[in-house]
Simulated assay, not measured.
Amino acid sequence: MCNDLFRKSECTEYCDNRRTIVVKDSGNSQEYRVTNSSKKEFCKIRIDGCLIIEGEKCDYLILDCQDKLAFFVELKGHDLKKALTQIDSSISRLKDEIQNFKIYGRVVLNRTPTPNINSSIEIKLKKRIKQHNGEDNREFLKYMSQVLQESI
């Protein structure tokens, strides 16, 4: 179950077992979409401007309360490095509250990123998540243009 910090926060948009969780900012085309086919409880929490006011932060945190999975989501124009930095910073600031959760980063860009395979930011963040999660079959970081959809 998700802890009361998230369940009772004014930044929590909902905690329930809806079939589809959608993260989208009004006026932007980027969208992160989760299909919740097993009807588990998910919480959708706004980080930017609510849970974290100052400094670098990503847009949303999606929590799978049953399986203890935390997805840090950033909807971005085209700057993948900046998005990864925002996710990294958000993980640092919320690590105590999600210490029992496996963590993941998700970025949706409005145009296809030019991949920089050797990006030190990306390598460092993947390594950090791997150390936190241990062995895991799920991708630690995913990024896509326009719509990123996955089933959890």
Score class of each variant (00 low, 15 high):
residue 2 C to E: 06
residue 3 N to Y: 00
residue 3 N to V: 00
residue 4 D to M: 01
residue 7 R to W: 09
residue 7 R to F: 12
residue 8 K to F: 11
residue 9 S to C: 03
residue 11 C to D: 06
residue 13 E to M: 06
residue 13 E to I: 09
residue 14 Y to H: 11
residue 15 C to D: 05
residue 15 C to W: 01
residue 16 D to I: 01
residue 19 R to P: 05
residue 20 T to A: 09
residue 22 V to W: 04
residue 22 V to T: 15
residue 22 V to S: 11
residue 23 V to Y: 00
residue 24 K to S: 12
residue 25 D to K: 02
residue 26 S to P: 08
residue 27 G to N: 03
residue 27 G to M: 03
residue 27 G to K: 00
residue 29 S to T: 12
residue 30 Q to N: 07
residue 31 E to I: 10
residue 32 Y to A: 13
residue 34 V to N: 04
residue 34 V to T: 10
residue 35 T to L: 12
residue 36 N to V: 11
residue 38 S to L: 12
residue 38 S to Q: 13
residue 39 K to I: 01
residue 39 K to Y: 12
residue 39 K to A: 15
residue 42 F to T: 11
residue 44 K to W: 10
residue 44 K to R: 14
residue 45 I to P: 06
residue 46 R to H: 05
residue 48 D to N: 08
residue 53 I to V: 11
residue 53 I to N: 14
residue 53 I to M: 13
residue 54 E to M: 08
residue 55 G to K: 07
residue 55 G to N: 09
residue 56 E to D: 13
residue 57 K to T: 13
residue 57 K to V: 07
residue 57 K to Q: 14
residue 57 K to A: 15
residue 59 D to L: 10
residue 62 I to F: 02
residue 67 D to C: 01
residue 67 D to W: 01
residue 69 L to I: 05
residue 70 A to R: 01
residue 71 F to Q: 08
residue 71 F to P: 08
residue 74 E to G: 05
residue 75 L to T: 02
residue 76 K to E: 15
residue 78 H to Q: 11
residue 78 H to K: 15
residue 78 H to S: 14
residue 80 L to Y: 01
residue 80 L to G: 06
residue 80 L to R: 09
residue 81 K to C: 00
residue 82 K to D: 00
residue 82 K to P: 00
residue 82 K to V: 00
residue 83 A to L: 07
residue 83 A to K: 08
residue 84 L to G: 04
residue 84 L to A: 07
residue 91 I to H: 02
residue 92 S to A: 11
residue 93 R to A: 09
residue 96 D to P: 00
residue 97 E to T: 10
residue 98 I to N: 05
residue 98 I to E: 02
residue 99 Q to T: 11
residue 100 N to D: 15
residue 100 N to S: 14
residue 100 N to G: 06
residue 101 F to N: 03
residue 101 F to C: 04
residue 102 K to Q: 13
residue 102 K to Y: 08
residue 102 K to H: 11
residue 104 Y to T: 06
residue 105 G to S: 09
residue 105 G to P: 03
residue 107 V to N: 09
residue 107 V to R: 09
residue 109 L to G: 06
residue 111 R to T: 03
residue 111 R to V: 01
residue 115 P to C: 07
residue 116 N to D: 15
residue 116 N to E: 14
residue 116 N to F: 07
residue 119 S to A: 07
residue 119 S to P: 02
residue 122 E to V: 05
residue 123 I to Y: 05
residue 125 L to K: 07
residue 125 L to I: 12
residue 126 K to R: 15
residue 127 K to P: 00
residue 127 K to E: 15
residue 129 I to F: 02
residue 129 I to T: 05
residue 129 I to P: 10
residue 129 I to H: 05
residue 130 K to D: 05
residue 132 H to A: 11
residue 133 N to G: 06
residue 134 G to A: 10
residue 135 E to C: 00
residue 136 D to H: 12
residue 139 E to I: 03
residue 141 L to E: 13
residue 141 L to R: 09
residue 142 K to M: 13
residue 142 K to F: 03
residue 142 K to I: 10
residue 142 K to V: 13
residue 145 S to I: 00
residue 145 S to P: 14
residue 147 V to I: 15
residue 147 V to R: 14
residue 147 V to M: 04
residue 147 V to H: 07
residue 148 L to M: 12
residue 148 L to R: 06
residue 150 E to T: 14
